[in-house]
Design a protein around this nucleic acid. Structure first.
Lengths: 219, 219
DNA sequence: TGTTGTGAACGCTTTCACAGCT
DNA sequence: AGCTGTGAAAGCGTTCACAACA
């Protein structure tokens, strides 16, 4: 190793770090102060070599023959994931799901407070959702700047989702959580993560069918 | 079991087929009857070779020099994913999210009707959610059998999620959609898909940080 | 002794490139 | 000529296996 170069962590490992973090927070809550890769692997449902590789991308923070410190690893994972600060979230679309997200208190403690919710329906604008007031999507850019928003969640209907994405991108947002069942067209500099329950159900049905099916002999 | 085994599609391809299906349904709705791998690739945000490989796992259903039939490919994807039938879903946990899922009409047209919702809280049992009545989780097995449930969605609190999973497994369910932010312990014969918005947000924050950060000089 | 950290091997996924068919 | 289907190559991600070290 030469310099203080910022390590780029493989995508697959990045996707697992939040899971490890969750488990380590639970361990912390139950007064566990050390863990081995075997223990974390069992809790995370993966194999121990994978845990060690993943954690090694953060640096060499374990002790051979002993294991890892819970608090220290929590600190390192949070640092790597960018969780030493808060990331403000704005919800676009004040329907059932959007309102549920705005009211849900579970994101703030994890560092992602929902600071705004907007819609394009005049009947919804001005209404109160949780402790927020629905603002006009036309004011998105202003709100993003004023409230220092980093992440946009799209909870509109499918037909409005692309327009919502465009509005977010115009407002300078580069991280989008999309709940609409479409593939958004966005610049490559924007990260989009899709949460499509229909897709999840269909994947489950494939494997369910594989298990269920008595295979007929095929010619 | 000595016969020709049904072709097993790689997991990565299975995860993309529902996305293609969604797009093809949109094409159908706009009266498009044929498409090429290039066109689908552009709409799905992937590369054309990947589309052709993925579709080839279904069989050779394209026409060289021409492309693919929308309706025929929809049929084949649905057949492969097990979508020629309905898969009934039961929701465990009648909180905000569980009720939202039960009331949400978007799953039935995709073949996944929510046929039941249960809880262990006596105050919730018997209440009406959409057109369903919350039943006691103690009756889960009975309901699963009577209503021919194939998939369980866990929308309980984190602390109750493992118990919910155990109850589903005991009731004979082998496909679980888990919204609680924990790793469920289940037999390997059970498919679990986790939907954890906290994890999604943390992954977004990692890449957001990568973009935002001014990189230290490299040696 | 016990556990980490990591090259090397392995296997899965993506991409390339072009033969094969319409 | 145009587009699919697919071997082969390249690229990633996972697992192995063991040296390094407390």
């Amino acid at each position: 190793m030469t310099q203080l170069q910022r390590r780029r962590i493989p995508d697959a490992a990045v996707a697992r770090l939040p899971v490890y973090l969750q488990i380590l927070n639970n361990l912390l809550a139950t007064k566990v102060s050390r863990f081995s890769s075997d223990e974390l692997a069992a809790l995370a449902g993966v194999n121990a070599a994978k845990v060690r590789k993943d954690l090694s991308y953060l640096g060499s923070y374990g002790t051979r023959g002993v294991g890892y410190e819970v608090t220290y690893l929590i600190y390192q994972i949070k640092r790597e994931l960018g969780l030493m600060r808060e990331w403000n979230v704005v919800v676009v679309g004040a329907g059932n799901l959007g309102c549920a997200l705005a009211k849900f208190g579970g994101f703030t403690p994890r560092g992602f407070p929902v600071v705004g919710i907007c819609d394009n329906d005049p009947k919804k604008i001005g209404q109160t959702v949780g402790h927020l007031s629905v603002f006009d999507v036309c004011n998105l850019q202003k709100i993003v700047v004023e409230l220092d928003v980093a992440i946009g969640a799209i909870t509109t209907s499918t037909t409005s989702a692309q327009a919502a994405a465009d509005a977010l991108v115009d407002a300078g947002i580069t991280s989008i959580l999309n709940f609409a069942p479409i593939v958004l067209a966005t610049p490559s500099s924007v990260s989009v993560r899709n949460v499509d329950l229909g897709v999840e159900l269909q994947i489950l049905s494939y494997y369910e069918q594989m298990r269920t099916e008595q295979h007929a002999p095929v010619g």
